[in-house]
């Protein structure tokens, strides 16, 4: 079972979820290049100008670890990255768990993405303008954490330690992406987990993904926001297990 984090965090965002599957599955956790503990030097501006670059990394990780017929769990933009990887290498994953997926964030005629083009550009401008306030605030947040000794120093320091320049580029790639056409080409079975009141991936988007995927289940979670894996891990785990139980119980990674 391969877990892929989305924009804004790293593999730590799975910390309340993956232990629930550790007995049954081999767990693969990683940080996208430019996030968390990844080697920032490996960041290649050209490669990561589209989600395919990130999908190639997932394929490489799975091939290195001999993952076949596995389960891919992707949050936010990584749900689509996993879908692209599964199209390019169908043998890797039998199932995709897509948490808060969105194939396109900007509205387009009949399609509702949740954002106007102007809003997305406002976001990208914010990233350009507010660099200092943003990174300083993050440094304060991450470094000054005397009240929670149970979080190890290592964890605190690596959590959300995204390089601001790379974060900017990742945001640009994410929020300007349009992978709607890829959905119909996904052959793996998919579970779409949709949050209530998710400003980033509204219900209409989740419904669209579910409708376009050839073989998918759709679950609307009680959880609000965009990160049910953190805010409502029990509900997330339960929805995933229900989905898997409907499958062949023999399946293992």
């Amino acid at each position: 079972m391969v877990f892929a984090h989305g924009f804004g965090c790293d593999q730590n965002m799975w910390r309340f979820v993956w232990p629930a599957f550790a007995e049954e599955y081999r767990i693969v956790l990683f940080d996208h290049v430019g996030c968390g503990g990844s080697d920032l030097k490996a960041y290649d501006v050209g490669k990561y100008t589209s989600l395919e670059g990130y999908a190639d990394d997932i394929i490489a990780i799975c091939r290195e670890l001999d993952v076949t017929h596995g389960i891919f769990v992707g949050h936010s933009v990584s749900a689509m990255i996993g879908a692209i990887a599964s199209i390019q290498a169908p043998e890797l994953f039998d199932d995709l768990v897509m948490i808060g997926p969105s194939p396109r964030y900007i509205d387009d005629q009949e399609y509702t993405g949740g954002f106007s083009e102007a809003q997305i550009h406002e976001l990208l401008d914010f990233l350009d303008d507010n660099h200092m306030g943003w990174s300083q605030a993050m440094a304060t947040v991450i470094m000054g954490n005397p009240d929670r000794p149970e979080l190890s120093e290592e964890l605190i320091n690596s959590f959300c330690m995204t390089d601001p320049e790379i974060a900017k580029r990742f945001a640009r790639v994410t929020f300007l992406s349009d992978n709607r056409a890829d959905l119909a080409r996904v052959t793996a079975r998919a579970l779409v987990l949709q949050c209530s009141e998710d400003v980033i991936a509204p219900q209409a988007v989740g419904a669209y993904v579910h409708q376009r995927l050839p073989d998918s289940a759709f679950v609307l979670l009680q959880a609000t926001g965009h990160c049910p894996n953190l805010s409502a891990p029990e509900e997330t785990i339960s929805a995933m297990k229900t989905f898997f139980e409907a499958r062949d119980p023999e399946r293992r990674i």
């Binding site: 965002m13 976001l123 401008d125 914010f126 990233l127 980033i200 965009h226």
Partner: peptide, 19 residues
């Protein structure tokens, strides 16, 4: 604002939940 909403959801809400 819209950028704040996105950053709140992607960065600060997770941070809040974790620390």
């Amino acid at each position: 604002n819209i950028a704040g909403k996105i950053y709140y959801e992607t960065h600060f809400a997770p941070l809040m939940r974790m620390q």
